[in-house]
Structures are given as C-alpha cells and as structure tokens.
Nucleic acid binder design. Structure first.
Lengths: 140, 140
DNA sequence: TTGAACACTTGCAAAACACAAGTAGACTTT
DNA sequence: AAAGTCTACTTGTGTTTTGCAAGTGTTCAA
C-alpha cells in the first residue's frame, strides 16, 4: 500500500485517473482546459509517471496527428473500486458539490457502477459516467 | 473527490490513517519509530491537518502524561473501504511484500474485514488487524 | 535529582511545484 | 504554398513543500 502511495501520493495523479475513467478525458488538451488548474509541466510529468507505472498508455490519434490519446490500462481501470469508495466517502463526509442522492444510489449499486465503468473502458466509450446515472454534472 | 485529495494528496496522510486503523498505532512515538521514515516535522504537520479535517482526534494518555493518544474519528474509520480497495489493488498489481493469498482472502470477505475493523475501532482494540487474518506481518 | 522518554519545534538545504513563456510538429485556411 | 492555429509538450524562474539534523520542554522512572 505504501507502494501505491508512491504513485498516488500527490494532488494530481488520482484526479487524472478519475478524469480518464469517468469524465471521458483522452487528450492533454482535455486536462489542460478542464478548469482543474493543473500546470502543463506537472501534467506532462504525471502522465509520464502514470505511463511508466503501467496505469496509463498512449496512442497517436488516427484522425489527427497532433493529438495523443491517453487511455487507462487494465491496471488503471482496476482502480475503479478505490475511486468509487473515495467518492462515496467524500459525499458522506465532505461538502462535495455532487448531489448526495446520486452518490447514495451509487453506493447501493456498487457492482453495477463498476460493471458499467469497465464496460465503457472495454468498448472505449468516452461518454462521462455520471450522466448515465443522473443526467447531472460530475462531482468536483 | 478532489476535496478528498486536498487532504490525502500527499505521501503520508493515508499511510498515517492506515497505521492507526490496522497497525494499532496510537502515539507520535509509534509513527516516528515505525521504520517508515517520516520526518518528525512532517509527521506533526500531518497529524495536525488530519485533526483539523476531523479524521483524527487526540486525547492525553491517562496513564502517562507524556503521551498523546491519536485515534481515528468516525469519519476516519469510514475510510476503511478505501484503504481496503487500495490494498487489494496493490496486491494485485504491485509487488507489495504482503502475502497475496491473505489479501485474496480479504478480497473475498470484504464485509467481514470491514466489520472487524469497525469493531476494533469501537472497542478501542489496538491489536493489529492482519495477524487476526493470517498471523503474519502487515503489508508494507 | 539525574537521566531517559515523548511530543514536538526550529533552521537550513534540496526537491517539488506553479506560472508564464516558448518550441515543434500537424492540420487548416487562404 | 504561406500564414495562422491547434496540440503537446519543454524551459526558465520564483515560491512552496519537504527532508534532515538538531534542539526544546514537559513528564516519568530510578
């Protein structure tokens, strides 16, 4: 577990994983303009580290040679349960900006949420997860 | 979730929570001499932050006035599912030093493990969790 | 009452981070 | 085909955070 924290022990890495997982982010541009405010040098560094850790992989966009597509690996998508529990915890104990009933719903259907998350990953379905649940904004 | 990461977005905070939760740590001294190598100024700072975040609370030791006992709050113990999932993920995807079969056992009995963890917290039972499962060392 | 245990704090160097700007290659427009 | 734009970065530069060593103050134990 301390090994895990050597990878995630910073403010951005897990957030990047979450954005790839549930918000449908794919490119450097997506992250840079998401409003989360990560500096581009840090972003580049974190993506590099996540790649080296085998959590993220890259492929050039077949339709636009300027773009690089980032994607979670199997190891990366396997973090879904961790993220989900953290989301549930945050909704319960912090003011999250996310509608609590939606999260409560997720907490009741953990397996269904995880299954859908994996399905999206397998099928490269980039649509954000939360609208599927609620038609609402992603939690902050 | 990004709010959660403002608390846990560093190398030590979650580790401290874990040590309180499953290793039976209670004092500053425990952390300082655990071999994890956290600097004392950082340790003091993290404990302070976790306290301010309502995850940890302190009480003077009734038997030894030098000691301060740190203890998880309800909010803190509610992080157990997050820690458990992270532990399972690490065992599956990283070389953890923890015996994998034990973790696999935990993965199969998540609810039982969480229940026992909560029980220990409620009853202030400081014995480490893993020996209960396996008679072995805590994962690194 | 001397020494050790415990929970810190302080000072300083090194590393990580944030911000602004710049670069390079790939598309798009004229 | 030249000029501008988009995307993915890198490169300074200053600030903040961290790590290390040492020190402080209180409490206990002999």
């Amino acid at each position: 577990m301390s090994i895990s924290l050597e990878i995630f022990g910073d403010r951005w890495s897990l957030l990047i994983v979450r954005d790839l997982m549930v918000r449908g982010f794919r490119t450097f541009y997506d992250f840079e303009h998401s409003g989360e405010g990560i500096a581009t040098n840090i972003l580049a560094d974190r993506l590099r580290r996540l790649k080296r850790a085998g959590i993220v992989e890259t492929e050039p966009d077949p339709e636009d040679g300027r773009r690089v597509n980032y994607r979670l690996t199997r190891k990366g998508i396997d973090l879904a349960p961790v993220l989900l529990e953290l989301l549930i915890w945050g909704a319960e104990h912090e003011k999250t900006g996310a509608p609590c009933e939606v999260i409560a719903e997720m907490a009741k259907n953990r397996e269904a949420v995880l299954k859908e998350t994996r399905r999206r990953w397998e099928q490269r379905d980039p649509t954000p997860l939360l609208p599927w649940l609620s038609g609402r904004e992603v939690p902050d």
